[in-house]
């Protein structure tokens, strides 16, 4: 995926992104931000809202800077750019489900939150690629 082009090898990334460790209701996963716009406000909002659906506390860490995924303003301080790896951690009764849900958005649903070409998309072709 996009991360493999900018961060590490495909093999290492695959290994990281599937290494969920469950120890007493704690789950972790390394995921890569694979979006030209990085972790901008719309996906941050989506991640925050998703995290609130779980009892576990979910945090995201980049460069030793860890914040609660529920807190939008704190998430914005990370300024996560395309190709960056981040660590997701959840602690609580539904930790694994929480980490999986957050990772799912980052790994598979990210592009639908893109907001670029809003101006250009007003004129045809409307189905032009967003990158």
């Amino acid at each position: 995926m996009g991360c493999t082009a900018t961060v590490g090898s495909p093999a290492r990334l695959r290994s990281d992104s599937t290494s969920v460790a469950m120890t007493q209701a704690k789950a972790t996963r390394v995921v890569c931000i694979n979006n030209p716009h990085g972790l901008h406000m719309r996906p941050i909002t989506a991640l925050s809202q998703r995290a609130k659906e779980f009892q576990s506390e979910v945090t995201i860490t980049k460069d030793h800077h860890r914040v609660n995924v529920q807190h939008i303003i704190d998430m914005m301080t990370l300024a996560v750019e395309n190709g960056s790896e981040v660590l997701l951690e959840a602690v609580g009764p539904d930790a694994e489900a929480a980490v999986t849900a957050i990772a799912e958005i980052i790994e598979h649903d990210f592009s639908k939150y893109d907001e670029e070409n809003i101006v250009r998309s007003e004129s045809p072709p409307a189905d032009a690629p967003s990158s």
Binding site: P36, H37, G38, L39, H40, M41, I73, D74, M76, E81
Partner: peptide
């Protein structure tokens, strides 16, 4: 500018850091 996503993220970072 559409082609400077990093600047946008860093502006958000600065604003949010102060707002905390």
């Amino acid at each position: 500018p559409p082609d400077r996503p990093g600047d946008h993220l860093r502006a958000l970072e600065n604003i949010s850091r102060q707002l905390r």
